[in-house]
Structures are given as C-alpha cells and as structure tokens.
Amino acid sequence: MAVALILVLIAAGSVAFHLVSPWWWTPIASNWGYIDSTIIITFWITGAVFVAIVLFTAYCVYRFRHQPGRQAHYEPESKRLEMWLTIVTGVGVAAMLTPGLFVWGQFITVPEDATDIEILGQQWQWSFRLPGPDGQLGLTDTRLVSPDNPLGLSREDPKAQDDVIVEGGELRLPVGKPIKALLRSVDVIHNFYVPEMRAKMDLVPGQVSYIWFTPTRTGTFEILCAELCGVGHSHMRGTVVVQEQSDYQAWLQDQQARSFARLAPAAQ
C-alpha cells in the first residue's frame, strides 16, 4: 500500500517538478529553434512512457499484493501482446528519431552565404579570427605558433595578412547572418559552447571541425568550454557579443586598422 502510494508520488512529483521548476533552458538566441522543438517532442513521449510505466507498476503492486489465498496467474508469454508493445515502441522511437535526423541534416549543412570565422582554443583561453576585406581566412600551422604569432598564421599566405585577430575572449558577430565557425585547437581538445545558441562542437588539435548558426537576437552571451581540457577547464570562458550590422561593421573597421598596425612590423 505505502509502496504503491510512493510510486504514484514519484510519478506525480517528477511531472510537477518538470512543470514548476525554475530551471529550464535559456531563451534561445540562434536559428536552432528546431532543436528545442525536437527536445519538446522527446519530453512529451518519454514523459508519457515514464508516467505510464510507474503508474502501472504502482497499480500492480497495490492490486496484486500478497494476500492469503492469492495465487499468481500462470501465463508464460503472450505473443500478441508482446508484438503490439514492440510495434508501439517502434512507432514512438521513430517519432523521435525522424525529426531528429531531419534537423541533424540541417545542422551539418552549412548555407552558401555563411561567413567563415575561426575559433581557436588553447589552455585556457579563446581567440578568434575574422576574415579581413578579402573575405577569406589565411592558412595556419600549429608549428608556427610563437609568442608574437599566437594563432600560428602563415606569413607566406597573402590571405592571412588582413585577418582580424581577437585575443582575450570577446567575439563579435552581426545579428541575422549565418556564421560558419571553423574550430581549431593548438593543444588539447576543447569545446565551443554557447548555451543560448544551442550549438556545441569540439575543437580538436590536428584537425578543423565546424559548426554553423545564425544569431537571431542582439546581446551578450557566455562562451563555455564543454570538454575537459585540464585544470583550467571551468575557467575557460569567453563572450559572444551579437550586434546590429552597422555596429558590427564599425567595430570591424576599427579592429582591422589595429591589426594591420600590429602585423606590419612582424611581416618584414
């Protein structure tokens, strides 16, 4: 009796917690609303299954608890019942998987007009590189990294000459424009994660990975590292500032002027 009641309370309590808890995802700031929708579908289906199973268990525990004279029913199996349950489960799984795969297809297909930027991780800070007026990022090589060339830019590559480098963890992006972020690390694996953007991907040394997203509202958001990268892992923070197009352009001009000035002597 008490056991059945507690089981019911667990089911009810879990649902209540879900509905009233103040802890929920952050308001979205990118185009990945579809991910949220997929999560919602999954919550509905799994929540229903959880409640159904726990309540059924509670019912059995109450209804078939041992009493003098009770004998269990002898029934080794029921093909029909098992088949139906399998089919229903299969349908439920498909209902979650299909939209999931569909959205994943979008997640990995970068739109043509996306702007390339580079995000570079190292223990334990973020750096960023934006293409200069030529709109293209220059070549890099980890072996070229040195105090005056922290990103390992190739001095030979003309495309690298005008790249805008931001060290110290503040990335600015224009609102409403798709961004393709090329992710690179010079030491260990890090992970670029902005909760509001819903996007996340590892930065792996020795290769370049990517994600894309379109910021949909202006504001300042936190960048977290989401892959254990050593003792400084939880302190590896940065910020993304999403700005109106005009503000962004003004900032970019200013940066370009500065990074020319900085690169010029070294380039000789």
Binding site: W25, Y34, I35, T38, I39, T42, I45, T46, V93, M96, L97, G100, L101, V103, W104, F107, P195, R198, A199, K200
Partner: peptide
C-alpha cells in the same frame, strides 16, 4: 533517448 538522438544531444 534524448542523448542518443544526435541533434538533441548537441545542446
């Protein structure tokens, strides 16, 4: 089922 469903796993 959340974590296995690739795109839900991303966030």
């Amino acid at each position: 089922l959340f974590l296995g469903n690739v795109v839900v796993d991303v966030p």
